[in-house]
Amino acid sequence: MGVILMQQTLIRLPEVQRRTGYSKAWIYRLISQHRFPVPVKIGTCAITFIESEVDAWINQRIIESRGEVA
Protein backbone atom coordinates (compact mmCIF):
# COMPACT_ATOMS: atom_id res chain seq x y z
CA MET A 1 0.00 0.00 0.00
CA GLY A 2 1.51 3.34 -1.08
CA VAL A 3 1.54 6.64 0.72
CA ILE A 4 -0.23 9.57 -0.89
CA LEU A 5 1.35 12.93 -0.12
CA MET A 6 0.01 16.39 -0.79
CA GLN A 7 2.18 18.70 -2.82
CA GLN A 8 4.84 20.15 -0.54
CA THR A 9 7.46 22.84 -0.99
CA LEU A 10 10.98 21.87 0.01
CA ILE A 11 13.44 24.44 1.33
CA ARG A 12 17.18 24.14 1.79
CA LEU A 13 19.11 24.58 5.02
CA PRO A 14 20.24 28.18 4.34
CA GLU A 15 16.58 29.22 4.06
CA VAL A 16 15.77 27.39 7.30
CA GLN A 17 18.66 29.22 8.96
CA ARG A 18 17.38 32.54 7.63
CA ARG A 19 13.84 31.90 8.88
CA THR A 20 14.82 30.67 12.32
CA GLY A 21 17.95 32.71 12.96
CA TYR A 22 19.67 29.52 14.10
CA SER A 23 23.07 28.19 13.05
CA LYS A 24 23.45 24.95 11.15
CA ALA A 25 24.92 23.27 14.25
CA TRP A 26 22.00 24.36 16.45
CA ILE A 27 19.42 23.15 13.93
CA TYR A 28 21.14 19.75 13.79
CA ARG A 29 21.24 19.61 17.60
CA LEU A 30 17.49 20.31 17.78
CA ILE A 31 16.87 17.61 15.15
CA SER A 32 18.90 15.08 17.18
CA GLN A 33 16.82 15.99 20.25
CA HIS A 34 13.57 15.51 18.26
CA ARG A 35 12.76 19.19 18.77
CA PHE A 36 12.85 20.30 15.11
CA PRO A 37 11.29 18.93 11.90
CA VAL A 38 13.27 16.06 10.40
CA PRO A 39 14.88 16.85 7.04
CA VAL A 40 14.13 14.99 3.82
CA LYS A 41 17.12 13.35 2.15
CA ILE A 42 17.07 14.16 -1.58
CA GLY A 43 20.51 12.88 -2.53
CA THR A 44 23.64 11.30 -1.13
CA CYS A 45 24.78 14.59 0.41
CA ALA A 46 21.70 16.78 0.11
CA ILE A 47 18.79 17.43 2.45
CA THR A 48 15.80 19.73 2.41
CA PHE A 49 13.06 20.58 4.85
CA ILE A 50 9.31 20.61 4.27
CA GLU A 51 8.38 24.28 4.32
CA SER A 52 5.01 23.77 6.03
CA GLU A 53 6.65 21.80 8.87
CA VAL A 54 9.24 24.52 9.46
CA ASP A 55 6.53 27.20 9.36
CA ALA A 56 4.42 25.23 11.86
CA TRP A 57 7.46 24.87 14.13
CA ILE A 58 8.10 28.63 13.98
CA ASN A 59 4.43 29.39 14.67
CA GLN A 60 4.49 27.07 17.69
CA ARG A 61 7.52 28.91 19.10
CA ILE A 62 5.63 32.20 18.70
CA ILE A 63 2.58 30.80 20.51
CA GLU A 64 4.74 29.44 23.34
CA SER A 65 6.60 32.76 23.71
CA ARG A 66 3.27 34.54 24.13
CA GLY A 67 2.23 32.15 26.90
CA GLU A 68 -0.59 30.72 24.83
CA VAL A 69 -1.44 27.03 24.66
CA ALA A 70 -1.98 25.46 21.25
Rank of each mutant, 00 (worst) to 15 (best):
V40A: 04
I11F: 00
C45P: 01
G43F: 00
T44D: 08
P39D: 08
I50K: 10
P37R: 00
Y22Q: 06
T20A: 05
T44G: 10
I27L: 10
T44A: 14
G21A: 12
S32E: 11
V40L: 11
Q33F: 13
A25Y: 09
F49R: 02
R29W: 11
L13V: 14
R18D: 03
L30F: 08
H34L: 12
Q17G: 11
P39R: 07
K41I: 12
E15L: 15
P14R: 14
I11K: 10
L30N: 05
T48L: 05
Q17R: 13
W26D: 10
A46K: 04
Y28K: 12
Q17V: 10
A25K: 09
Y22V: 06
R12C: 12
I42C: 08
R19F: 10
T20K: 03
R35E: 11
S23F: 14
V38W: 05
G43A: 04
K24L: 12
S32I: 07
F49I: 09
P37C: 05
P37F: 01
R12F: 10
T9H: 06
F36A: 05
V16I: 07
T9V: 03
P37V: 02
F49P: 06
V38Y: 05
I50D: 06
Y22G: 00
Y22K: 08
T20S: 07
Q33V: 10
A25R: 12
L13S: 12
Q33H: 13
T48D: 15
Q7T: 03
F36R: 08
L13Q: 11
E15H: 10
R18F: 08
P14W: 11
R29G: 01
V38I: 04
G43D: 00
I11P: 09
